[in-house]
Design a binder for these strands. Structure first.
Length: 516
RNA sequence: GGCCCCAUCGUCUAACCCGGUUAGGACACAGGGUUUUCAUCCCUGCAAUGCGGGUUCAAAUCCCGCUGGGGUCACCA
C-alpha cells in the first residue's frame, strides 16, 4: 500500500465537537499507525458562517490533546493552501473541466422551480430528482439567458444508468442507484464551490488515501465517488465510523440539543460541575462551555490522556479486555477493521473513571502545575506564585490524594485559603452542636495548643491520648474538628487539615465554631 | 416518506469474518472488607445475544423476513 494520508476537515464553528474529536482521533491514529501523514484542512467554503476566531478553539483542542498534524492550518505543506476559502481557482478549474466534458451543466432553474418540482414529486410519492430543463435549452436560448444575465448554478450530471458501489473499510459493501440521486450543485452563481465538490477536489489534490469520517457522510459518498470518477481521480479508500451518540441514546450527539442534555442523567453531573466551577474562574457556567465541546474538559481540568482514552474506546477496542490505553498504545494497535459499526453513546462515567486512573499516574509536580492556574484564576492565590505558596499547594495535593480527580477539584479545598468559611449546616448540627461535643472540642483545643511540632502524627497522637483519657470516641472528635475547621463533612484526613491550617488558624477556627 | 446504515448486560465492548466459550472484560449499580469522613484499594454480586423462520449434529456467529433504533434527503459542512 502506498503511503497513508488521512485528513480531518473541520468547518470553523467556534468550538470543537467532542464527537468530531473522536473522528479526528481515528484519522490521526490510522495515519500514525501506518507511518503516514495526517492533514488538518479547513473546510470554510461557507463564507457566511466563518470568522477568524472560530478556528482558534479547534486548533487548541488538537494541541491540548497532543494530536499534531503534518500538513494543514498554520503549518502549511506541499499542497497549500489548506483553507478551502483560498482554493477557489482549483475548484473553478475542476468545475470548468467537468462542464466542458459535458459532465456538468448550467442550471437556470430558480429555487422556486426546484421547490415546486420537489413538492410535486412528493405528492406523487416518487423520489425527487432534477428535471434538467436547462439541458433542453437550445444554444440560442442559452445565449439569450446569458445575455440577460440570468443567474445559473453548475450542477453535476449524475449518470442515472449507473449503480455506485463502495467497499467501505468499516461498513463493507454498500450500493446506491444513480437513478435516485439528484444532481448536486457543485458551484454557486458567484463561482464558489459546494462542500461535496470542494471535498472531492481537495481529497484528490492532497493525495488523501483514506477518507475516515463519520457515518452521517455515508449518503454523500456516492456523489463523491461519481465526482472522483468524472474528474478522473484515483478513488480514495473510505471508512465510515459510527457517530458518537448522546449518553444512553442512539441519537447523534448534537450541540443543538444541548438544552435537552441538561436533563440527561449522565450529562447532568457535567453541567452541574460546570456551573459550580466556571463561575469561580470568572467564566460563565455551562451556558458558555458545555460537555459537547472539547474545551469543557480542558477547562474543568481533565487530562488529555483521559479524554483520549475515553474517545478511543468509543467504537473501537484493542482486544477483549484492555481498557486503559495511552495514545502510544493506541497508535501501536489501531486498525480500521476493529472499529465497531453501531453508534455508541458517550459515557461521562467511564471518562471519569479513566480520568481517575490517569490522574493517579500523574507525578506530583505535574499535578501542581495543573492545579495552580485554578487557584490563581479563582483569586485564592496571587501571581507570581511564591515558593512558599507552591510548597503549600503541593502539601494540599498530597493531602487530597485520590480525592483530586480533575484539577478544578483543588477548589473544593478553598477553605485552606479563605478566612471566612462556609459551614455545611446540616452536618455542623449533626457533628458539632451535639451533646457533649462542644465541651470536648474546647478541652481538646487546649491540648492542641501544646502540640509541637504541629504536624499530622503529633496531632493524631494528641487526639488518641485525649480520647483514651476521656473515653470519648475518636470519630466524634474527628468529625467535629473537620466541620469546625473546614466547614465540610468530607475532605482530606483531619490531621492533615489541621497541620495544613497551622496551629493558630486551627485554634481560631475551633473557637469560632464554638462561638456560633 | 425515499435512500442508506445499525442491532450482545443499564452503558462501552469481546467472541461473529473461519458455527461448538459456564457468552469474557470494563464502567455504572448493589453488598462486604480496609481507611473512624470522603476518595482510593480489595472481594462478591447483579446483568445481555430483539423476534420469527431457515441451513446444520450444533447458530450470538451463516441466510431470509419482521420489528425496533438511527443517519440522510440544501445554492450547510
Amino acid at each position: 500500500m502506498s503511503v497513508v494520508r488521512t485528513r480531518f476537515a473541520p468547518s470553523p464553528t467556534g468550538y470543537m465537537h467532542i464527537g468530531g474529536m473522536r473522528t479526528a482521533l481515528f484519522n490521526w491514529l490510522w495515519a500514525r499507525h501506518t507511518g503516514g501523514q495526517f492533514i488538518l484542512r479547513i473546510d470554510d467554503t461557507d463564507q457566511a458562517r466563518n470568522q477568524e476566531t472560530a478556528l482558534g478553539p479547534i486548533l487548541q483542542a488538537f494541541r491540548w490533546l497532543g494530536l499534531n498534524w503534518d500538513e494543514g492550518a498554520e503549518v502549511g505543506g506541499p499542497y497549500a493552501p489548506y483553507y478551502q476559502s483560498q482554493r477557489g481557482d482549483l475548484y473553478r478549474a475542476a468545475a470548468a473541466r467537468l462542464e466542458s466534458a459535458g459532465l456538468a451543466y448550467r442550471d437556470f432553474a430558480t429555487k422556486e422551480e426546484i421547490d415546486a418540482d420537489r413538492k410535486q414529486a412528493d405528492r406523487e410519492k416518487r423520489p425527487y430528482i432534477n428535471i434538467r430543463r436547462s439541458l433542453e435549452l437550445t444554444d440560442a436560448q442559452r445565449a439569450d439567458l446569458a445575455a440577460q444575465g440570468k443567474p445559473w448554478v453548475l450542477r453535476f450530471l449524475i449518470p442515472r444508468d449507473q449503480k455506485v458501489q463502495l467497499d467501505d473499510h468499516i461498513r463493507g459493501h454498500v450500493e446506491w442507484d444513480g437513478a435516485l440521486l439528484p444532481d448536486p450543485v457543485i458551484q454557486r452563481a458567484d463561482g464558489s464551490p459546494l462542500y461535496n465538490f470542494a471535498t472531492v477536489v481537495d481529497d484528490a489534490q492532497m493525495q488523501i488515501s483514506h477518507v475516515v469520517r463519520a457515518e452521517e457522510h455515508l449518503s454523500n459518498t456516492p456523489i463523491q465517488i461519481l465526482l472522483h470518477q468524472a474528474l478522473g481521480n484515483p478513488l480514495p479508500e473510505f471508512a465510515h465510523v459510527p457517530y458518537v451518540a448522546a449518553p444512553g441514546s442512539k441519537e447523534k450527539l448534537s450541540k443543538r440539543k444541548i438544552d435537552q442534555y441538561r436533563k440527561n442523567p449522565q450529562f447532568q453531573k457535567m453541567f452541574e460541575k460546570a456551573d459550580e466551577v466556571f463561575p469561580q474562574l470568572g467564566l460563565t457556567g455551562s451556558a458558555a462551555l458545555d460537555p459537547v465541546m472539547v474545551e469543557y474538559y480542558e477547562r474543568i481540568g481533565y487530562l488529555p490522556a483521559a479524554v483520549i482514552n475515553a474517545l478511543g474506546r468509543i467504537g473501537w477496542s484493542l482486544d477483549d479486555s484492555t481498557e486503559i490505553m495511552s495514545l502510544d498504545t493506541m497508535v501501536k494497535h489501531f486498525t480500521l477493521d476493529r472499529v465497531v459499526k453501531a453508534p455508541a453513546g458517550f459515557d461521562p462515567d467511564k471518562l471519569y473513571s479513566f480520568q481517575g486512573h490517569w490522574m493517579k499516574e500523574l507525578p506530583l509536580d505535574r499535578k501542581l502545575e495543573g492545579c495552580l492556574p485554578y487557584l490563581v484564576q479563582s483569586k485564592l492565590i496571587v501571581e507570581p506564585v511564591s515558593a512558599e505558596t507552591r510548597a503549600f499547594v503541593e502539601k494540599m495535593i498530597v493531602a487530597l490524594g485520590d480525592r483530586l480527580k480533575v484539577f478544578s477539584d483543588i477548589l473544593s479545598a478553598g477553605y485552606f485559603f479563605r478566612d471566612t468559611i462556609v459551614y455545611d449546616e446540616k452536618n455542623f448540627d449533626k457533628r458539632v452542636r451535639k451533646e457533649s461535643v462542644p465541651a470536648h472540642l474546647a478541652a481538646f483545643s487546649k491540648k492542641l495548643e501544646a502540640v509541637e511540632p504541629f504536624a499530622a502524627p503529633a496531632i493524631e497522637a494528641a487526639l488518641v491520648a485525649y480520647c483514651q483519657e476521656t473515653g470519648e470516641q475518636t470519630g466524634t472528635l474527628i468529625h467535629a474538628l473537620r466541620l469546625s475547621t473546614t466547614g465540610q463533612p468530607v475532605g482530606p484526613g483531619v490531621y492533615d487539615c489541621l497541620a495544613l491550617l497551622g496551629k493558630e488558624k486551627s485554634l481560631a477556627r475551633i473557637a469560632a465554631a464554638l462561638a456560633r
